[in-house]
Design a protein around this nucleic acid. Sequence first.
DNA 1: CCAAAAGTGTTGCGTATACACCCATGG
DNA 2: CCATGGGTGTATACGCAACACTTTTGG
Lengths: 194, 194
Amino acid sequence: MQNNIRVKLAVFSILEGKLVIHGDNHLPVTDLKKRESLDSCVSELFDNATGNTLSDFYSEQLYTVDHPFSVVYFALIPHFQILNKVAVFKPINSHKFGHPDAEIVSYALQRLQWKIEYTNVVYSLLPDEFTLSELQTVYEAILNKKLDKRNFRKKMLSLGLLTSSGRKKKGVKARPAEIYTFKSRNPQIVKIFS
Amino acid sequence: MQNNIRVKLAVFSILEGKLVIHGDNHLPVTDLKKRESLDSCVSELFDNATGNTLSDFYSEQLYTVDHPFSVVYFALIPHFQILNKVAVFKPINSHKFGHPDAEIVSYALQRLQWKIEYTNVVYSLLPDEFTLSELQTVYEAILNKKLDKRNFRKKMLSLGLLTSSGRKKKGVKARPAEIYTFKSRNPQIVKIFS
DNA sequence: CCAAAAGTGTTGCGTATACACCCATGG
DNA sequence: CCATGGGTGTATACGCAACACTTTTGG
């Protein structure tokens, strides 16, 4: 009747326009202590990995596997928020083959790809203020394909998740971009199923 | 480090055009035995509940909760396949309030509602042969709303999941309906994300 | 011939896609 | 004045929703 329970975490971030994931050749794992909640266990893992606090970012439970028995989560954090400077983040592609957690990474990516189509969770990969181009870069990194600029902007603005700050990015050697923020930095589902 | 793991199962079926769920005032649960796989544990639960074999039907893992620690699954079975004649199946609505597993049932229903929009998993609620009206009844029970007959038929046929048998239902006191089968009785995702 | 359920098309609308040029700034 | 990235509109295609009558059978 007694079993060991492990909790595993995939932490995604964006680095130089690429989707990266924490961990060198495996995802961070820890044992769930007796009477410890799943939430606090994941938070601890996240703190170890990033030096930051999970409750300030987006995370969700992915799946539970056995052999060994593990509950798997993923989380999203902007790269500049990773305070743990020895943390290793590697491009998602390097986890494709031969990686012990390759299946998990692949499934997590798929879930993330679905999720960004109908929620605002990418807020958790960006600073408070950003330009539409920066936002588009994040989408392209996650979806692993180029998007059309005009269509992307139309869609994003029509979803009503963004607020224009009225200010513009200064000091760039090109036309300055409008600065946007997310209306809410909590998970919001946008497509209503009637 | 040692924790008890439980496995919980929501079994859905269709009875008299209504979505029903197995269990009287709680969902069936069992302890995961040491070194037992999740799959075999769920299969055992399903067998107890229905007298039938899980591998012949559709099931999926839903979520893992703690306090108490449980991995929750749901499964779909046509009513005539329930061989255990003492099994209790109750309409989904009776689980709305005051039910100890109400949250789980509600989440399972939501997942099921999403799933039938882009997969063929309803095969697991129907006999091999069925009419489009019977299929529509199943969709209406799950979605809890009336659907337009013409639009429903157009959509179903265009998805390419069904085969017409060429035969018609005999002995009915109205115009006999064409009999259809599912091309595949394994889970198929129809919307391709390019 | 009547009751009961099966079967069948068209139109409008909203959303997704494809596509190319001008604008504002720094150096 | 040039290089860099920001910003904009239109036309087409496709999927979804609304909507009513005719057909086939059994009794």
